[in-house]
Simulated scan of single mutants.
Amino acid sequence: MQHDEPGSLSRRQWLAWSAAVASGMLIMPPAHANVMLEDVVLEESVVAHGQKLVLNGAGVRRRGYHKSDVVALYLPEKRTTPDAIYRLDGVRRIQLNLLRNLTSSTITRVFLSDFKQVATDEEFRQLIEPLGMIGAAYADIKRVRKGDVVNLDWVPGKGWMATHNGRPLRSVDGILAINDPLAYQVYLRMYLGAAASAELRNGLLGLTRLEKVE
């Protein structure tokens, strides 16, 4: 009697498996698919600060006639309304995939303008110190180029942290970590609030279908 080697398929098992594949009885698991927007490939899930996050959605942010970046939102679990995202616990990530070259002075000016537009006067006064830290961190970048990736994360217990092409952004006191929940909540409003374009907001809320790629 012929004995199969451990871990190998017998001829009978192999024939049965082949027949099942041919007849469509054996369903193979689908290949992992990412998504693509403006030729930027986005992972459907990432691990950030030890926590697995899923892609909630993505959209294009525009400045006038120009497309500035592809914005992706990663959350511990998917949500379809801004309020649900604001209340969500755990790590949250806004990822910026740059579509244009920009200087740090332009980044800082645009950021402050957008932030002030979505914050109340009282909130803006409360956040002067965090805004100064963010300005110093952006000055540390000097310049961003098309294809660069900036991750802006909220990490419970540490605060608002950021990386540019994997390099942590730094403030005057070291690696940027702004432990101010209000600062990050206002920042999220820039993308999910009423001032954001419907195209961007709907994309980040997962209401826009994205192209699948392997």
Rank of each mutant, 00 (worst) to 15 (best):
1 M>E: 09
4 D>M: 10
10 S>I: 00
16 A>S: 13
17 W>H: 01
18 S>E: 11
19 A>R: 04
20 A>Q: 08
20 A>S: 10
22 A>I: 07
26 L>W: 01
30 P>Y: 06
31 A>Q: 08
32 H>G: 09
35 V>M: 07
36 M>V: 14
37 L>V: 03
44 E>F: 00
46 V>E: 12
47 V>G: 04
50 G>K: 03
52 K>D: 14
53 L>M: 04
55 L>W: 02
60 V>L: 15
62 R>A: 15
63 R>E: 04
64 G>Y: 12
72 A>C: 05
73 L>W: 06
73 L>G: 08
77 E>M: 00
77 E>N: 02
84 A>D: 14
87 R>P: 04
89 D>A: 14
93 R>A: 03
101 N>W: 11
101 N>C: 15
104 S>L: 00
107 I>D: 09
107 I>W: 09
108 T>E: 10
108 T>N: 03
109 R>T: 11
109 R>K: 14
110 V>K: 07
114 D>Q: 08
114 D>R: 14
114 D>E: 14
119 A>W: 08
125 R>Q: 15
130 P>F: 04
132 G>D: 13
132 G>M: 10
135 G>C: 08
142 K>S: 01
149 V>T: 14
150 V>H: 02
153 D>R: 03
155 V>K: 01
156 P>H: 08
161 M>A: 03
161 M>H: 02
162 A>Q: 10
163 T>W: 00
166 G>C: 09
169 L>Y: 05
171 S>W: 02
173 D>R: 11
177 A>D: 01
177 A>M: 03
180 D>I: 05
181 P>I: 14
182 L>T: 12
183 A>Q: 13
187 Y>W: 11
189 R>N: 09
192 L>R: 05
192 L>H: 07
193 G>E: 08
193 G>R: 04
196 A>R: 10
199 E>I: 04
200 L>W: 07
205 L>S: 08
207 L>E: 15
209 R>M: 10
212 K>R: 13
